[in-house]
């Protein structure tokens, strides 16, 4: 008995270790997560990231595309519960006879999904939480019990089809995230989450402006371009995690995660972090871009996305283009 007391748990942890070690050793024979060569959803920017009653919400997708991609067709849904990721986050219309609310709260076919949070007031939010957490209510097996700490968490689902308005689940790009509709008192808190911000991007100490592709002359094909994301430390908010409210020294600093994407070249790293006492802001901001493996023979337009997240579903993004010219 003692032999196998926690074999599955031990296996989980050892798999994690193996994953990290092999990722350090892994030869780059797969396309990198950070290379954009096809239609991909990179992030949602939801403004505001946590929605108070009565607020207008704007949900913008951050999408990477191939240069020769077709037109994109969008389908948004905001649902109480969805089927799991392995079932493509499908939203059934209803969750059974015991749930007196529609499952699909809102939907849209526009690229940017906007709605006003007058759909569910504070009392309705709490009532839904109570119903979904009630042992007396029979729910479909895929429904997870919502954790209603600061509000009602909903699922936001995007389906993007390329080239035609309707496509099969396996052909669509499907992405999902949590969206919290705040209770009234949570909406009034001073440490309520706001999206972080990226001020811009510098390459080799040169600011790259939106809509103005910056020309970079690659005198030495081995040269690494020095990239710097302009992120101010102040965008990391101080807040009290719900579980620790009321405790002394409960306030913590948000952690930031910056993901880099490019259409060409090799990024020095795919993700940078900022975490109080663990990872510095410089670590978050700095990166490199190299064309040593595939130096362009002709001027090459390279798209670069930056997606900045905090650890409370806040997000921000910028897109810049550079033109890499080979040495004459």
């Amino acid at each position: 008995m003692a032999t196998h007391l926690s074999s599955p748990l031990r296996l989980t942890l050892l798999l994690l270790v193996t994953l990290a070690v092999t990722s350090a050793c892994d030869p780059a024979d797969f396309e990198s997560f950070n290379r954009i060569s096809k239609l991909r959803v990179l992030a949602f920017v939801v403004d505001p990231p946590e929605v108070a009653p009565g607020e207008e919400v704007s949900v913008s997708p951050v999408v990477g595309t191939a240069p020769d991609g077709g037109p994109l067709f969008w389908s948004w849904q905001l649902c109480l519960a969805t089927r799991g990721p392995s079932e493509f986050f499908r939203c059934p219309e209803r969750l059974g006879d015991d749930v007196p609310f529609p499952n699909v709260i809102a939907s849209s076919q526009d690229e940017v999904f906007t709605f006003t949070q007058d759909l569910l007031d504070d009392g309705t939010l709490r009532q839904i939480c109570e119903v979904l957490n009630s042992p007396a209510v029979t729910l479909p097996s895929f429904v997870e019990l919502p954790v209603c700490e600061i509000g009602l968490p909903l699922r936001l689902v995007l389906r993007v089809c390329e080239g035609e308005p309707d496509c099969d689940d396996l052909d669509a790009e499907i992405a999902s995230r949590t969206l919290v509709l705040l209770f009234d008192e949570e909406a009034a808190r001073a440490d309520r989450n706001v999206n972080p911000a990226i001020a811009g991007l510098m390459i080799d100490d040169q600011i790259v402006r939106a809509g103005e592709p910056t020309v970079i002359r690659l005198d030495d094909p081995e040269r690494e371009l020095q990239l710097t994301a302009l992120v101010n430390a102040a965008v990391a908010q101080r807040f009290e995690p719900f579980a620790r409210r009321g405790e002394p020294d409960a306030e913590v600093l948000e952690q930031l995660r910056l993901t880099w994407f490019s259409t060409a070249g090799d990024l020095g790293k795919g993700v940078g972090f900022f975490a109080d006492g663990i990872a510095t802001l410089e670590e978050l901001q700095a990166n490199t871009l190299s064309f040593a493996d595939e130096p362009p023979a002709e001027p090459l337009t390279v798209g670069i996305w930056l997606v900045l997240r905090d650890n409370r579903q806040g997000a921000a993004t910028i897109y810049r283009e550079i033109i890499v010219e080979p040495a004459p």
Partner: peptide
Amino acid sequence: LIGSTFDVDNDTYIRVA
């Protein structure tokens, strides 16, 4: 594995088996 979906919260793809 027949596909994947993107988990925006965790910035990762989830396998569809």
